[in-house]
């Protein structure tokens, strides 16, 4: 199995965000947009509607009949229900997609220690039936924060994402703007919102779709600092 060496990791949207005036900084090996020149405005937007690209940050996953058991054996906290997300001690989030599959989101605001530890612990013999999944490359990762996020999603997605139907840590695997997506109800720096994980090759398409759909709510792209994920 290939082990990644720490080359700097960028979002598939790097150039597009750069064009919007992103100011960059590193979080671990990930080059992330700190803000877009207007930290105060972005913080305000984060309460209303803000789109934060987390695609450069670490994530991972394990799949197969032994996947959940193997992770639990290493100390991961995973409950019995699937289509639920389970928060971990280091701030990462395990979205249990099925009884046989876990999608792991690294913390937005710190080192992904658990992801690294599990990756280090994996080998084909010890983890038969628990196969690693290249989630950092297969999926792009957005966080849509703010109270208007459910109304915006209502234009793109047939699943009800309002609080009463989609409480914290609920997971929905569905279609968003005709692209398969995993939605995870989450929280970053006290900002409620929805994580959206989708085909990394469609990141640019989805970004455009979001900008268009956010317009009527005065939503805008925001850097990680806007949701308190960077100092």
């Amino acid at each position: 199995m290939i082990k990644l060496v720490p080359l700097p990791r960028r979002s598939p949207l790097h150039r597009r965000l750069d064009g919007l005036g992103a100011e960059w900084s590193f979080q671990g090996d990930a080059e992330v947009a700190r803000h877009f020149g207007d930290p105060e405005g972005e913080r305000t937007a984060a309460g209303r509607l803000a789109l934060v690209d987390l695609s450069a940050l670490p994530r991972g996953g394990y799949k197969g009949p032994a996947a959940i058991g193997w992770l639990a054996g290493l100390g991961a906290l995973i409950g019995p229900e699937h289509n639920r997300a389970y928060p971990q001690a280091d701030g990462s989030l395990i979205a249990k997609l099925a009884p046989t599959e876990a999608f792991i989101l690294g913390p937005a605001d710190g080192p992904a220690d658990l992801l690294a530890a599990w990756e280090g612990a994996w080998n084909a013999e010890a983890a038969d039936g628990a196969w690693p999944m290249p989630r950092r490359d297969s999926h792009c990762w957005f966080f849509l924060a703010g109270e208007a996020a459910p109304a915006m999603f209502a234009k793109l997605c047939a699943v009800d994402l309002r609080e009463r139907a989609f409480p914290l840590h609920a997971v929905a695997q569905t279609s968003v703007a005709r692209t398969n997506a995993i939605l995870v109800s989450g929280e970053i720096g006290g900002h409620r919102g929805a994580h959206l994980l989708a085909d990394s090759a469609s990141a640019d398409y989805l970004f455009g779709v979001f900008l268009d759909a956010m317009d009527e709510f005065d939503g805008r792209p925001a850097g990680l600092a806007a949701i308190g994920a960077l100092g």
Binding site: P65, H82, A98, P99, T100, E101
Partner: peptide
């Protein structure tokens, strides 16, 4: 026989 995603 366990196959991915089946044991619901």
């Amino acid at each position: 026989t366990p196959a991915a995603g089946d044991e619901t």
